[in-house]
Structure formats: C-alpha cells, structure tokens
Nucleic acid binder design. Structure first.
Lengths: 138, 138
DNA sequence: CAAAACCGTTGACAATGGTCCATGGTTTAT
DNA sequence: ATAAACCATGGACCATTGTCAACGGTTTTG
C-alpha cells in the first residue's frame, strides 16, 4: 500500500512514517512496476506502527525499538546479548508501569477529593503523598 | 535541606532540580538567616520529585505536571476546569498504560520464544502481532 | 484537461527535557 | 589555611522526536 493509505490506517502522519523509515523501524520498496518513484509498504506495516506506539507508551526510545524490531525480524546478530537486552527492557518497562500506575491512582484520588471538597480537602491526598499506590520498594 | 542533599536523596542531578524549579514544579526559599545566597528546599521536596518521576513514567509533560501540582497545592484557579483536566489525563494515562502493558507482554513473549529457539521460531510471536495483550478496542 | 490530491527528497525548524560550562562566592574537611 | 566540595546564576548546548516548507513530478477526479 502507499504511504497515504498507511498513514490513514495507522493514524500517523506521512512525515512520521518517513521519519521512522529513516530510522529503520519500517521499510518499503520502490514500486518498480509503475515507473513513478512511489514506495510500497507491506501490509503488516500498520501493525508495526501499532507496536511502535505501544513501545513508546512503554517508554522505549526509537533506538530501542529499532533494536527490538531487528530481533523480531530475526536479524540474528550473533554476539549481541538479546536476552540481556530484553531483560533490561522488561525491567525498565515494569518499573515505568509501576510508576505510571501509582500516578494514575494519585490522579484518581485527586479527582475524587477535589470533587468532594472543591475548595480544600486535598490534605488527605497530599498526606498519602507520593508513595503508596501499591509500592514495594522503600 | 540544601540542593545537594535533595539531589542525593531523590536521585536526580542538581541541574534537574533547578530545571524543575524554573518550571514551577518545585520551590525553595533563600536561606535568609545564613547570609549566603543558598537555597533551602522543604522536606517534602523529595516526595515531590518522586511524584514527578511517576508522572513522567505516566507520560505527562512538565507543563502537565505543573498544572497538576498547582491543583494539589490548592492553587484554586477558578474557572479552570480541573475535573476536565483530570479526566483527560486519566484517560490518557490509562491508554498509555494499556499500550505499555501490551508491549511488555510482547517483550516477554519474545524473550521466551527467543530463548527456546535461538535461531528462529519468532513466527509465533510475529503472528500474534501487535494486538492481543488483553486488547479491548478494534 | 485542469485542479486537487498524492508522492519523493532534502533540509530547516521546533518543542521537550535536560546537561554542561563559566564565573565567583561559601563551607567543610584535613 | 588551604584544598575539596558545595552553592547560585546565566546562558550555551545537546539528543530526541517529530513537523513543515519548498520543489518538482504523478495520479485521480470532476
């Protein structure tokens, strides 16, 4: 499919797709049949873009995602510690997920407290504070 | 406490603290007693820094966090739709959390698959694809 | 067929979140 | 008392993640 269709399907801009492509996250081939220089993107590209979105939500950088995609595509690099890389990322993402979850709880508590007592009454929230959204460490 | 102590306690650089302060996320007062220009940070600043970390993990921008902190500090702004803001952020964070969770699942599946079949055998993972980490939409 | 919509490439621009450096003063440890 | 460690301020600098503009060609549509 052409870039415009993909962009619409995946809800990202054409420029973003090109940006990802420049960084090796997506690939396309020039349509040799039609002699225009147009590029054709594989069907699964839309799915790839979803994975990228999720990976970004998980806090991975473009560089990280590129590595991960490389492994998914079986670019077996020999002497690159995939398990190490994956373990590292799993740990990072888990930590980030915990933090995000904690913050979501705080947001929700704030909302309730603020709805209840429009002017004040946030002290409970403030006291509960940073911690305590199922915290384990500390 | 002084900036160095806070930095150590919260595991961020002094520069980062100053950066946050410039953006209104943290505040400090000049120590008037001691006539040096040194600044004193309140005890709860370390906790604030933890909240900031969590909020960032949840994908909020510094600007967003500033607004949120303002509300927590009861900077009641009148005619600012706090509930709307909170609802919006809760929705955003929830979505991000879902995406991150999905990606974490993918990471874990990849790890297992790759451990099992060092050379290939990623097709199962690839086929399961983007979706399917408890997805609701689509 | 003409206008509108699309495509490619290149390179500049921008916002975000920090980090680093220079300068000059203060405190603490030896 | 002197060096090492700390502090403040200001501004330059950096990577990341896109976005936009310009230019020229192609396809689609009315």
């Amino acid at each position: 499919m052409r870039i415009g269709e993909l962009a619409k399907k995946a809800q990202v801009s054409r420029d973003t797709i090109r940006f990802y492509e420049r960084h090796g996250l997506i690939r396309s081939d020039v349509d040799e049949a039609a002699g225009n220089g147009y590029r054709i993107y594989p069907e699964d590209a839309a799915m790839t873009l979803e994975v990228i979105r999720d990976a970004q939500a998980a806090g991975l950088s473009i560089a990280d995602i590129t590595v991960f995609m490389g492994q998914l595509a079986a670019q077996t690099d020999a002497d690159f510690d995939v398990q190490g890389f994956l373990d590292g990322k799993i740990a990072e993402v888990t930590a980030r997920l915990d933090g995000a979850q904690r913050f979501l709880t705080l947001l929700e508590r704030t909302k309730v407290a603020l709805a209840k007592a429009p002017q004040d009454g946030l002290d409970e929230v403030r006291k509960a504070g940073a911690g305590n959204g199922n915290r384990t460490r500390n």
